[in-house]
Design a protein around this nucleic acid. Structure first.
Length: 194
DNA sequence: CCCTGATTCGC
DNA sequence: GCGAATCAGG
């Protein structure tokens, strides 16, 4: 993929809005977050409006990439809890706070036209989860241990919120059913060719 | 551990 | 110019 005018524009726009490089890369498609960051730099729009993130001193002595005796570890399976099923219309992506000024409520129509689902959750797994949620122990956050399923259920904004609490799978943060929905999808992850 | 952006440098 | 590899902070 090449940096066409439109792609660059979208890049600028999203970067300006405080989107992360990885998100921009995902949105554009065909590029990695590194490519995005590289482009951002080349475009000269490095830092965003002084967001209180991390300040780079700029000139830091490094120099050492000459040789790379780095014993790199193998990538793992990232996998994060996938979005819950349908019910809450508030499942939106707001990764960064951005400027306090632009806090406009979502319009009325369809602010999100082309939303290709990041990942699909098998209907089967969902059904399973629904069943499990009925048997959930409804434990609070303080009751979570290494052995309890940490799958959140309900709306954190209300009292209808608890954790599954069923016995989690060894080495996993969730019970079997929730491991299913949490780790199932996640198909593509950029290659790390060497 | 995951994620961020930043930098370097071979292409 | 491009972006993977790498670095460095959170």
């Amino acid at each position: 993929m090449s940096w066409t005018d439109e792609r660059v524009e979208l890049l600028k726009k999203m970067w300006g809005e405080g989107q992360s490089a990885s998100q921009i890369a995902k949105e554009l498609g065909g590029v990695t977050r590194n490519a995005v960051i590289g482009k951002v730099h080349r475009l000269g729009l490095s830092n965003r409006a002084g967001s209180g993130a991390s300040a780079k001193p700029a000139a830091a002595p490094k120099a050492k990439p000459a040789a790379k005796p780095k014993a790199e570890a193998k990538p793992k399976a990232p996998a994060q809890p996938a979005a819950k099923a349908a019910e809450e219309p508030a499942a939106e992506a707001a990764p960064k706070p951005m400027s306090p000024a632009r806090r406009a409520i979502i319009p009325a129509g369809q602010p999100l036209p082309p939303q290709p689902s990041t990942n699909e959750i098998p209907a089967e797994a969902l059904a399973k989860v629904n069943e499990v949620e009925k048997k959930a122990k409804k434990i609070s956050v303080m009751e979570l241990t290494e052995k309890t399923c940490k799958w959140p259920i309900g709306d954190p904004a209300t009292d209808d919120f608890w954790f599954c609490g069923l016995p989690s799978q060894p080495g996993k943060p969730y019970c079997e059913a929730h491991v299913g929905v949490a780790f199932q999808p996640m198909s593509s992850r950029r290659d790390r060719r060497r």
